Simulated assay, not measured.
Amino acid sequence: MKVLITGRSGQLTRELQIALPADVEQVVLGSAELNLADPEAIRQQVRAIRPDLILNPAAYTAVDLAESEVEQAMAINARAPGVLAEEAAALGIPLIHYSTDYVFDGQKAGAYLETDATAPLNVYGRSKLAGEQAIRAVGGQHLILRTSWVYAGHGRNFLLTMQRLLQEKPHMKVVADQIGAPTWAGTLASTTAALIQHWRQGQAGPWGTYHLTCQGHTSWFGFAEAIAAHLQAEGKPNATLEPISAASWPTPATRPLNSRLDCQRLQADWQVELPAWETALQLCLAQQ
């Protein structure tokens, strides 16, 4: 089986390359080979490669910068997924696309269901929602997997930033009133591999939109505390942490206060198990 994967340098792409079984031929295209802002280039590449499955982890993910780079965010996050969906449908193959908790406004008291109304607060969220809508408009076999707070032991993410700053600074302020599920890219990749395996074995669940995060929830402050505890256990320098409100740490893009996603539907429909966020974090840290 031949799989086309977008986004060569992305943290999820790197984990997917590890998680996919050895009998899968991987065609990984970075921005140098595939300009996702160019619909015609996308079409030409997909038609030339003729994959059996498309995975689209590539995205414009600079949440704050997107507020001033609206066109670029929309081109990559909104229009490109629609083009990939059109080409996948033309080939009669599935598309697996990754979306975000930022399609919601964070005002709900509990965890968000796939059926809850979307209301993104920022350009990034609007662009990702538009990408979802473009895929659904095409139809065909697709999975839209919404996730949250993705990190890995490589790339640029909260885990690596905190590991560095906690050892450089004596004191740090971290937002404590935004709640979500830190999700290791390795968990996303291994779960994706399981979904693909079910499909290949003729045991696919219904296609559509699902939530996929590690289980449980915490705040950014709680996530930072867990990272700090690991550093402390290793005898490394450690800043003191101070919880603050999101309102006292303004950013160009407004972020939802509640990013919790209910993943029960994916687990039931596709028979996959998702680890607790603390367990996944320890697995990630063990690989560093």
Score class of each variant (00 low, 15 high):
P94H: 03
R136I: 04
I93W: 09
A280K: 05
L113S: 15
I49N: 03
W249S: 13
K169M: 09
E225W: 08
Y102A: 14
V138M: 06
A176Y: 10
L274N: 08
A193R: 11
L121D: 06
D52T: 00
E168G: 06
A176N: 14
V24A: 14
G222S: 05
E86P: 01
T6M: 07
P81M: 06
Q133F: 10
S148E: 01
L274R: 05
M1F: 04
R79W: 06
A130P: 08
M162I: 06
T240Q: 12
P256M: 09
L257D: 09
L91A: 04
R79I: 08
S190K: 12
W249A: 15
V3T: 14
A134W: 03
L145E: 01
E168W: 11
F221G: 04
K236R: 15
G222P: 05
N157Y: 11
L281H: 02
V70N: 07
Y102L: 14
A228E: 05
L65T: 00
A226Q: 04
A134K: 01
N157K: 11
Q17L: 02
Q203T: 01
V24C: 13
S190F: 01
H217F: 08
A75V: 01
G30Y: 12
V28Q: 10
L231Y: 15
A78P: 04
D105V: 07
W207Y: 10
A117N: 14
S259E: 10
F221T: 05
L121F: 11
W277Q: 02
L261K: 09
L53I: 10
R146V: 02
E40G: 02
D23N: 09
Y151I: 03
G222D: 04
V138H: 04
H198I: 00
P120A: 11
V24S: 00
V24P: 10
L95P: 07
K2W: 02
I54H: 06
I244M: 13
E242H: 07
D101I: 07
G205L: 03
Y210H: 01
E132F: 08
V103K: 14
L261Q: 11
T183I: 01
A152H: 15
Y98S: 09
G205P: 02
L241N: 03
I18Y: 00
T218H: 01
A185T: 12
L241E: 03
L84Y: 08
Q197A: 15
P182F: 04
V63G: 10
F104L: 14
L281A: 06
S245N: 04
A152L: 11
L16E: 07
A48C: 01
A41Y: 03
I54Y: 04
P120L: 08
T61Q: 15
V150Q: 03
L91H: 00
H230K: 13
M74Y: 15
